[in-house]
Amino acid sequence: MDGKGTGRVGRARHRGRRAVLLACALLLAGPAAARTVTDARGRTVEIADTGRVVAIGGAVTEILYALGLADRIIAVDTTSLYPASALKDKPNVGYMRAISPEGVLALGPTLVVAAEGSGPPDAIKVLGSASVPFLVIPEAHDAEGVVARIRLIAEAMDVRPAGESLAAAVADDFAALAALRARITTPRTATFVLSAQGAAPVVGGSGSGADAILQLAGIRNAMSALKGYKPAVDEAMLAAEPEAIIVMRNGAGGLSDEALLALPAFAGTPAARAGRVIGIDGAYALGFGPRTPQAARDLAAALYPELALPALPPRPWAQGAGGGG
């Protein structure tokens, strides 16, 4: 039973027996008041109670927090790194790609919201067929995708007005980002290196989240000839002549910037000559939640320092967001 329902009962008692009866009728008719939303899998999910939510995926948690619904989250997954309080205050159900259905259901949720790509597939199947509504939020790699994610979560949580204002603000931020991008006259090229330890460096090709954030930041992906995240041949990476190497902040497979630039694949590139390695925060830049415009702006500012690109207007959901340092 959710908080709103009991409140309705409480008020009704003061208005006499007819109202009490009406309230009871409303409560009994609870399931009829449930909303149905269509999720990323194209399934209709019927949601009656949004009081106890398990959030799986960093962007899901970020959006719920940005909608002011933090107190309805009963657990998050380990990719919910922002805001930092999420993992500190809430129990966690493990890594989003290694979810245990029992672990999630044991918490007694009334709704499970998971980002597309959560797994393993069997666990998702079990959760999808459990009696608890299970909503999958679609993959997003651009402004429309992020806004659609916000709208879907807001609709599922029955907070449409808050959702619309968040969606509008984020859309504004994306528009401001596009205006900044228009100031870039000669785009630079960069290679996103996911890891470079042990074997051929794994880089972000077209269709990857890394490619999407590069596009948003007005940077040309030097390795767009690849699809997804793939190990790349050293001489092809050299020939792509990236002007910057972009790595996750926790380092490309533990290598320092110097060691990375000394690899044969990068040693002769303009990036190595300029010593330009840009570290990004994975959750910030590759999460595709409400902070994405800020993340793209920070990345652009790091690669185009001479343009002195201004920061986007401050937003409560993007406070102290890790920049591209």
Partner: peptide
């Protein structure tokens, strides 16, 4: 982690990349 797993998986299949 995901990244470490990927590193190890590719390492265990062998590669001559990074030859200096």
């Amino acid at each position: 982690s995901d990244q470490q797993l990927r590193d190890f998986t590719f390492w265990s299949f062998g590669s001559l990349s990074g030859a200096t």
